[in-house]
Amino acid sequence: MNGGHMYWGFAALIGFGLLAPVAGIYPTFLMKCWCFALFACAFNLLLGYTGLLSFGHAAFLSVAAYVAGHTIRNLGFGPEWGILAGTLSAGVLGYVFGSLAIRRAGIYFAMITLALAQMLYFVWLQMKFTGGEDGLQGVPRGMLFGLIDLSDNTNLYYLVFAIFLAGFFLIHRVIHSPFGQVLQAIRENEPRAISLGYDVDRYKLVVFVLSAALSGLAGATKTLVFQLASLTDAHWHMSGEVVLMTLLGGLGTVFGPVVGAFVIIGLQNQLADKVGSWVQVIMGIIFVICVLVFRRGIVGELGRLLKRPL
């Protein structure tokens, strides 16, 4: 595989991330984009590289957001420990949901994850510590490692970007490891992977947990940015949104989910005040177009034009 162009891609991504806030793009908006980009990348690991469509990824985003918010605000954790706690809890939840969901394949898998996530939504609604409808508010950003003041937007921005990069490269590493090759073999031809002696269920579970934990990382970071965790994170709309980001950006591409997240968040940001309830209609139309005629997504199409996988 000719990987040279990839490095250009990485360089462009890092350059953009470092310079964007200096160039005057609103930092809170950028932080939101990076959080969702990480979320979409984690999702892509599952759908794009293993062929498992989870329709309940909001569950992992929300569990981490709530746990991080709760530990930081009420238990006095530092931001780094709060994020870690959130990520771990998402991993554990991923193990539970994953063990159930991988018992069925294909469409059933999607419906099961959706139903489990919906169940969790009701649980959050009734639990005391989540604040129900009101959400969990006023999470302090605190001092990273007790040293760096995160209430400063610039400091926080670079932390968020660093977290994104760490997640992003971890996913990249996983995909190109022997483990990742097996995942792709499962996506292409599961019976053959089984016949080659791979314990497919085990692989599926591991990648599911990994994807859940990384989604959790995104959720916990998001809590720190917005200083709140709310039911929005747990709603099935959120699960749908991450599918859309990945699909629009390009399924099974390295950069696709990042591009998709920026486009969708940017669109929502731009359109929300201008078209009101039409936002949902427009999202639906993008979905339909992507599925019908644009299945490669933005980055996928670009890769086809450049004749290189991106």
């Binding site: 469509l53 999607a110 749908g240 309830s277 999202m283 639906g284 979905f287 599925v291």
Partner: peptide, 24 residues
């Protein structure tokens, strides 16, 4: 001819459109 998951995604998009239109 494609993976059945695309059918699910398409109908999901259609659901969003219908719901959004009636909402509007």
């Amino acid at each position: 001819k494609l993976d059945h998951l695309y059918g699910l995604l398409l109908t999901f998009g259609i659901a969003l459109i219908i719901e959004g239109l009636f909402r509007d």
